[in-house]
Design a protein around this nucleic acid. Structure first.
Lengths: 360, 360
DNA sequence: AATTATTTGTGCGTATGTATC
DNA sequence: AGATACATACGCACAAATAAT
């Protein structure tokens, strides 16, 4: 070879391809190679620099030079400055606040957000995951879909874990994985909300919960525990369950039938503020006055729920805070640092949608 | 910059992107750059070597260094199935509906959305644009920022146009560019809203408009035209102007002072529903009843504005429709097809926030 | 057409910084 | 804490290709 660094490069590359050095095996140091090839450090660095660019090796300052795993092209430097966010919704309700919180943090560090909404649907979740993995994202922030149901995408999550792609889950978890999480204490908060209704004097409270995600199941159990601790018996008719695929109309229909079947009901606790808003709107349409005729509580402290009249009694969800925390966590993980999971303790927000039950 | 060659690299790269050096134009020699940056030849060569690897420049021994044609480079390389969306906000108000509309359409074809919000700020707009261009996006959907002000990012838009990156603007335009647009007839709609107030019998109507974007200016002019066509004289005190950087409190303060200075005012027409909601909330806090004491109209037909009490009289904005149309258009453009710009004619939505003025 | 100057390419020695072991 | 190993940076020398004379 005419050109020295080319000769060094060819020799080393052939040795790697021939398997003289295995994957992740440490190569000789620059000093060793200088002696072996009898060239200067510049020439060695020029050669291994090219090999690095061609993904044959990777280098760690102070550590050494190692053979790159060419089967998995997930090279360290090659990731795009994109963070993927997958949530059940992205444009509705409290999700804009969460996503905005993430964005405000990661934007500072030059990262952009790529978003996917699953509509609480595993097929769409899979599609989003595949898209994002293809794009060599730097990290993932995911709200599990249909978290109370078996998930057919666990193979992808195993892959994500194996490749050590920084990933955070929020609102729910996928069992069997050690991803850091940001959760709210849904059970505890719903228990407090229901207790508050008991304290106001209500005894016939019904709950309306979306039960294909874990949050909804937790909230339902929170209500049931409150009933038990209050020593008030519950029956099946105290709980209305629905799936995220059900229309609002059908849910409201169920509520109507339950109310008609039991005039003693004085309060409704709802899966979230969105549902509560629609139910209140419907009750008023029926001629009932909230809270005089019937009390309603929501969950999440949706901004708009404080502007409407009556303002909602609800449990505060740390929307923006959760988003910012998720942003900070994912940046730490990308940086290789350890992070700690966190559970937020929601606080009760008392609004105008609850009062003592009317004497009958 | 801590690292010299990185600083040199960034500077040169930006100058190339900004068009300081045209395609195939000769760059300064290594010696020149050494003098300019006051660094050694090694540092210069390290920087331009990286730029060569990243296909920004090519070098000819003995000849010089030249700007690479990255347009062809982009066309050759397969673009990522990402569509960039840049808007003033992404998480608030009607924007979630728009973004959701885009997503629902492009998701069908396997595209993901990467989002950036500018907070109506040109510096952030530039940052988002550079990020997205780096990521080899397939198309761009942009809501111009501070569209009533001079824009310092027109150089980037010229590049986008020159490189034929499929791009759509919505809500406003940047003059001098031929990007397809999706607009609403803000002037016409605001004229209709104001006419409606005149028909109800109002004669002293004030308008509150955000005037650093074109939509706000158009709406303001719509109101003024309605005044002229009704033959009612206007004065400066009929219009309150603010910037998006102003706080809501300061805007409401201006409204307060105007109302105190002129008790004959019977109606307020607002830049949008968000502002209208806050103003109504404030008026009621002051003890005024809407619409009995004062009528209020908004703009955009924000979903929540129909749920609150009183529901708003407003102009309908085709939020989700606009998003879906933008998604369809960008897919067509990526496909190489021609598309047509579109202007939506907003319709008036009459709510409970307006009535005949009270007899005094 | 040949010569010379310019410009990039290759290569060495040295010094200092920084991350890892 | 010290040694090791990679990263950055400067100065110099000469080769090879191009551009100017």
């Amino acid at each position: 070879m005419e050109v020295k660094y080319e000769a060094v490069k060819q020799t080393l590359r052939n040795e790697i391809i021939d398997g003289k050095y295995k994957i992740n095996e440490k190569l000789p140091t620059e000093s060793d190679l200088m002696k072996r090839f009898n060239v200067s450090r510049y020439t060695i660095r020029r050669a291994v620099g090219d090999l690095e660019n061609e993904h044959y090796i990777y280098r760690i300052q102070g550590g050494g030079m190692f053979v790159q795993d060419w089967q998995r092209d997930w090279a360290k430097d090659e990731k795009n400055k994109i963070i993927g966010v997958i949530s059940t919704h992205m444009a509705d309700y409290i999700f804009p606040s969460i996503i905005s919180g993430i964005d405000s943090v990661v934007n500072e560090k030059g990262y952009s957000l790529i978003v996917g909404n699953t509509l609480n649907n595993h097929a769409r979740e899979r599609q989003s995951l595949l898209n994002m993995l293809d794009l060599q994202i730097a990290g993932l922030i995911i709200e599990p879909s249909e978290s109370a149901m078996p998930n057919p995408n666990l193979d992808l999550y195993r892959q994500i874990q194996e490749y050590q792609i920084p990933t955070i889950l929020f609102h729910s978890t996928y069992p069997g994985f050690s991803f850091p999480t940001l959760l709210t204490n849904d059970l505890g908060a719903e228990k407090e909300l229901t207790k508050y209704l008991f304290e106001l004097g209500h005894r016939n409270i019904i709950g309306v919960f979306q039960i294909n995600d874990q949050q909804g199941v937790d909230r339902m159990n929170g209500m049931i525990q409150a009933y038990q601790e209050a020593g008030v018996p519950t029956t099946d008719s105290n709980v209305i369950m629905y799936q995220s695929s059900d229309s609002f109309d059908s849910v409201i229909n169920k509520v109507d039938m339950t109310l008609n079947g039991n005039p003693a009901i004085t309060a409704i606790t709802c899966y979230n503020d969105q549902l509560a808003t629609y139910i209140i709107s419907h009750l008023e349409h029926r001629g009932l006055i909230v809270p005089d005729d019937i009390s309603v509580v929501g969950f999440d402290n949706y901004e708009m729920a404080q502007i409407i009249s009556p303002s909602l009694t609800t449990a505060n969800h740390p929307k923006r805070q959760l988003g910012e925390d998720a942003g900070k966590m994912i940046l730490h993980m990308i940086n290789g640092d350890e992070v700690e999971s966190k559970t937020y303790e929601p606080t009760i927000v008392t609004g105008e949608s609850t009062s003592h039950p009317k004497e009958k």
